[in-house]
């Protein structure tokens, strides 16, 4: 029988890896992603539902889903949803990211 599940739907699939019990404290950028998600979802803004967030993660495709870590998937989904809702444009995002990259270039190594 063909398994027609999507990639994220992995419950019960064979896996011989032990559960990785090592933990890390959340990095500031991860907390900021979490905070952005919470604020966009609140009653004041109502710009991102849990289901929109899920859909964005599930639509990343198997390859990106595996390559990205957890909060990388989150910020990708948040960003795609905000683009779709025209909160900002691809151009604005591209310019802003280039600006942030350029600020980094100025950093002494």
């Amino acid at each position: 029988m063909t398994d027609r599940r999507r990639h994220h739907d992995m419950g019960g699939l064979p896996d011989s890896e032990p559960v990785p019990t090592r933990e890390h404290l959340f990095e500031p950028w991860e907390k900021r992603v979490d905070a952005i998600k919470a604020l966009l979802s609140d009653d004041k803004r109502n710009l991102l539902t849990t289901d929109e967030m899920r859909r964005g993660i599930e639509d990343l495709g198997a390859d990106a889903y595996e390559r990205y870590n957890y909060y990388e998937r989150w910020i990708s989904s948040i960003t795609n949803t905000l683009l779709q809702k025209k909160v900002f444009t691809v151009d604005e995002l591209g310019r802003k990211m280039a600006e942030i990259e350029a600020r980094q270039e100025d950093k002494p190594l």
Binding site: W29, F88, E99, Q104
Partner: peptide
């Protein structure tokens, strides 16, 4: 250096702030 996704996070935060959304 910041990763691509960290830059994306900062860009999204700055755009949301500039647009007075958060």
């Amino acid at each position: 250096r910041l990763t691509h996704h960290q830059v994306m996070q900062m860009a999204v935060a700055e755009l949301l702030i500039e647009k007075n959304i958060v």
